[in-house]
Computed example of a mutant assay.
Amino acid sequence: MRAYLLTGFGGPEKLEYREDVPDPEPGPGEVRLRVTAAGVNNTDIWTREGAYGDLGAGDPAAWRGALEFPRVQGADLVGWIDRVGAGVPPERVGERVIVDPVLYTGGEAELATSGLLGSERDGGFAELATVPAENAIPVDTTLTDAELASFPTAYQTAYRMVERVALARDETVLITGASGGVGSALVQLAKARGARVVAVVGPGKQEQALRTGADAVLLRDDVPAGESVDVVADVVGGPAFPALLDALRPLGRYVTAGAIAGPLTELDLRKLYLKELTLVGSTVSTHEQFADLVRQIEAGALRPLLAATYPLRDLPRAQADFVAKKFFGKLVITPQE
């Protein structure tokens, strides 16, 4: 099959396009799908760069520890099941599925040690992929496969964030990075809960954020004056962190699932305890939460924000465009083209 292989930690030169990769075969409890669309994410870039390790100690790592090379990246898979492994009903062949990218068994506490497609096992930047059968969720929608591939990682991350802080109707939430995949998903999910959304975006993206559902828009690095929001949903981090805490009302909640602007920041503990703030970390959703997300997609409650598609051979260009951040929504690879 055709696939892009990640051959080691580093820059785009570590991506190798191949047309002779052996077709994967589904093991017991697995299905194989013909991948029709696969979304591009920050995790792809950071995994390639080894950014999840202790860079100061020269110890690069993938999503959850060591990474085996070569690896097919791509966590967001949509496609059609063409083969099943032992123990999987043969009737599943021919199903159109969207794949839950989180790899774990057990309860919610297992999320802390979960793996991810495209990191702990091969993902969707290939013509074929195998996944655990329970991760391949049948989907019934008129959305295109590329539109569906805009959802998995971004929306399940956002879903988990609003769940972790129990965002409620009529609360005001400040969302950073609101033009990106997770940020734009947060806008939609927050509005679906009846919250008032203040979106922070880069120049030229204000109108798009308003069309997505934001009630108000601020330019990057700006925050509301005074203690004016109940919740901050942050995927940016970096030097803006102290100002984001300033924007929270007493008893406010801050939730983070990313650090695009940098993972290290300063925290004034007096601000934390005097305002009785709650700081929450969030990563990926449970299988149950992902299934609920798929039901919302099928019901038309969430709108895909597909910025562009690229054939498999153009994966390096797609990643370069992703890093440049000059788009609104999601970039998607279409391996069958």
Rank of each mutant, 00 (worst) to 15 (best):
109 A>C: 09
272 L>D: 08
285 S>C: 09
248 L>D: 12
176 T>D: 09
238 G>Q: 05
11 G>P: 10
98 I>P: 00
84 V>I: 07
7 T>W: 04
224 P>K: 07
271 K>S: 15
148 L>Y: 09
251 L>C: 08
266 E>Y: 09
307 A>M: 06
161 M>N: 13
120 E>Q: 15
292 D>Y: 00
68 E>C: 00
1 M>S: 10
248 L>E: 12
170 D>F: 07
225 A>Y: 06
10 G>S: 04
205 K>M: 04
201 V>T: 10
27 G>S: 11
235 V>M: 06
266 E>C: 05
256 T>M: 01
165 V>P: 10
30 E>I: 08
53 G>I: 09
60 P>H: 08
162 V>K: 01
189 L>D: 11
72 V>I: 15
23 D>S: 09
207 E>R: 09
331 L>E: 09
283 T>R: 06
46 W>F: 12
199 A>V: 10
63 W>N: 01
234 D>Y: 07
23 D>E: 13
279 L>Y: 13
254 Y>D: 07
172 T>K: 07
294 V>L: 00
60 P>C: 02
23 D>H: 05
111 L>I: 14
147 E>Y: 04
69 F>S: 11
125 F>D: 02
83 R>A: 15
1 M>C: 02
5 L>P: 03
304 P>G: 03
198 V>Y: 01
9 F>M: 00
55 L>K: 10
144 T>C: 01
224 P>L: 00
190 A>C: 11
286 T>P: 01
334 T>Y: 01
306 L>Y: 05
298 E>A: 02
134 E>V: 13
229 V>R: 01
78 V>P: 02
180 G>E: 12
160 R>Y: 12
236 V>Y: 01
77 L>V: 12
208 Q>R: 08
333 I>M: 08
10 G>M: 01
229 V>W: 03
313 R>P: 09
84 V>C: 02
189 L>F: 08
126 A>E: 07
219 L>I: 11
264 L>F: 09
227 E>D: 13
127 E>D: 12
230 D>G: 04
282 S>C: 07
76 D>A: 03
16 E>I: 11
71 R>S: 11
292 D>R: 08
102 V>H: 03
35 V>S: 02
243 A>G: 14
321 D>C: 05
270 R>H: 14
226 G>C: 06
325 K>H: 14
283 T>G: 08
106 G>L: 00
297 I>F: 04
44 D>C: 05
136 A>P: 06
232 V>C: 06
67 L>G: 00
213 G>D: 07
155 Y>S: 04
59 D>C: 05
310 Y>R: 08
5 L>W: 03
1 M>Q: 06
258 G>K: 09
231 V>A: 03
102 V>Y: 00
212 T>R: 04
312 L>V: 09
91 E>Q: 14
180 G>Q: 09
41 N>T: 15
243 A>D: 15
329 G>N: 10
253 R>P: 13
326 K>N: 15
134 E>D: 14
283 T>C: 03
102 V>G: 00
190 A>E: 08
